[in-house]
Design a protein around this nucleic acid. Structure first.
Lengths: 344, 344
DNA sequence: TTGTAGGCGTTATCAT
DNA sequence: ATGATAACGCCTACAA
């Protein structure tokens, strides 16, 4: 037997009072007598009354739900999503996560769907395929709050949180230079991602600072993907003047590069240096362990959610300044030529 | 300027017809003249009318939303969630993912929250802390569809999908036996998880089959956690009669075991054998590469979602039979004593 | 074929 | 302090 959940009507009927009084009592309004309040709450307790969210949603046009669109759920993004979730939950929001799978079309679909569901706003990280931002601009035009994180895009004007990609790229590259590497190659990601270009900029900045000529043949754009990185590295290693170090702008790519290096029979760090980006925990388990750039992903997520909530509460004065979080160099065996003690 | 989205009322007013006619026309009902249908649809097009989901939700008491509760989003579960998402989206459902973080209290909270949100049903994998299932039973009593996947629990009667844990444990252990290992230890997970006990059963079955005595000192229960596994392995290796092989019921634990083995200065596979469970891609990158049991996580997720949809459409005749998916042995350097060619 | 009216569960406005 | 009523946007008997 399945009896429907009780409503304020039921309570009103049983108590012989009006629904409005019940409603007020439940919301603990000021203009209800303490006595009726008590009797109402007693019955609420007894019937285990729960306000119907769906009715509330319709009435308030709010769902207390945030739509999160991410290109995938790799290590970094799933940490960030956890951060978002943490803060959102705390603030009484539920998060709906949609993966675009790096597909522009899917991203549009996701946005559309979430809009239909009546999410109160969006927290977004753009797919690598996305070059046009009309689907997001449409959201903004509807005055729906939106925050961009991690994979930001300069064409998309919105409050944003990301790490210092240029700084990270710089740190990684300068580290290799300081270790004495001369011909440093870089595996950059897809060209249209700001995250790729910024890390690449960092690489270039470091070379410039140390007066090393930038050699275009050492800059390779390829997908964020272990296999692509493997093949790209194989090509790099078969160059007449092969690089003596590689900076990959993600750890996944570093893994592919490592496999190609091992296959070629080269030794890290002496024959060749390697450094990745993200500092996934696995790097420390490999032989040799692989250097990387650490980023506080969880914090980025938390900040994104906080920023979202701020934005939502202040829609007529949106703060477009970028929040940029610092990264940290984690030097390991794959790039540490000098004895660790000497470094101290 | 922000003008509200159009409603059927607006359309009705502009066309000088009643809302019910508009409603019918939009839903392509049979009892509307082709002509009015056309004019309505034209205006729908022009105004870019979208039915208000929130109103629909209230009316139909459905949200086309599935609540997914998982203990975490590790490699296996995030693959499964992707599978769920895939099928659910296809079927017109949106998925809300909640992580219990292996916490019983959090799991209850998640269930409660999702219920409030008016999800149409649940797809659930239980936390390692969960021993009581009242929060789930309460859902079932409300006649809300629920499917359990991966981490099932025999006390929870519900349609379920999982892999053949016992079979996987058996394969892993028998493989070690066939490689000539004699004293095989097992790092099992938390005692109250069926997933732990089943894999452990597989281990015991294999020993029995090969007439090897079960030694309780070689069976260690510890959290699904690299650090715990590390310490547990250190203890195992300091036993007077130390094991010559270890089966860890997850890859995370295998990583911890590997570190302890390396720290002790032992070589795999000769000094000691090691095999994990899940076959995370990283295993193949390690030195030595680590054996494991492969499971089709994505498929498990897809099947769970399919099963959910079936269940939801057939609530008065719920199929409680278990769907069990086979696993596969992936033998690698950490446990392959015999030359690979000989194996052929 | 079309229109009217009531209801889904709640809150807000206006009376009383 | 309490009650009646309209409204949120949509659907569906029932009536015309």
């Amino acid at each position: 037997m399945l009896n429907k959940p009780p409503t304020i009507k039921d309570i009103a009927r049983q108590l012989n009072i009006s629904v409005s009084t019940v409603s007020r009592a439940i919301r603990n309004a000021s203009d209800v007598s303490a006595e009726t309040k008590k009797t109402v709450m007693a019955l609420v307790e007894e019937l285990n009354y729960q306000p119907n969210q769906l009715a509330l949603n319709l009435r308030s046009k709010q769902t207390h739900t945030i739509g999160v669109i991410v290109p995938n759920l790799d290590y970094v993004l799933s940490m960030m999503v956890r951060g978002i979730d943490e803060v959102a939950l705390e603030a009484g929001y539920t998060v709906i996560i949609c993966q675009s799978n790096e597909s522009y079309g899917r991203e549009i679909l996701n946005a559309r769907r979430l809009l239909d569901r009546g999410v109160d706003g969006f927290i977004v990280s753009v797919s690598s395929e996305t070059n046009s931002f009309d689907h997001f601009k449409k959201i903004q035009e509807k005055n729906i709050p939106m925050v961009v994180f991690d994979r930001v895009a300069s064409q998309l004007k919105a409050p944003s949180v990301r790490i210092d990609n240029t700084g990270g790229g710089f740190m990684a590259t300068e580290h290799l230079i300081e270790q004495g590497y001369k011909r440093i190659a870089v595996l950059a990601g897809p060209q249209n991602l700001e995250i790729s270009n910024s890390r690449l900029d960092g690489y270039k900045n470091a070379l410039k600072k140390h007066k090393i000529k930038i050699d275009p043949s050492l800059i390779i754009h390829c997908d964020f993907n272990q296999d692509y990185a493997f093949f790209a590295t194989e090509e790099l290693l078969s160059l007449k003047k092969r690089p003596d170090a590689i900076f990959t702008i993600s750890d996944r790519m570093a893994l592919g590069a490592m496999l190609a290096i091992k296959k070629k029979g080269l030794q890290m760090p002496n024959d060749i240096g390697l450094i990745g980006f993200n500092d996934e925990p696995v790097l420390n388990l490999l032989t040799p362990s692989i250097s990387s750039i650490e980023q506080p992903s969880f914090e980025v997520g938390k900040l994104a959610a906080k920023l979202f909530i701020e934005t939502m509460h202040n829609m007529d004065n949106i703060d477009l300044s970028e929040r940029i979080i610092k990264t940290k160099l984690i030097a390991r065996e794959s790039s540490l030529k000098i004895n660790a003690k000497k470094l101290k």
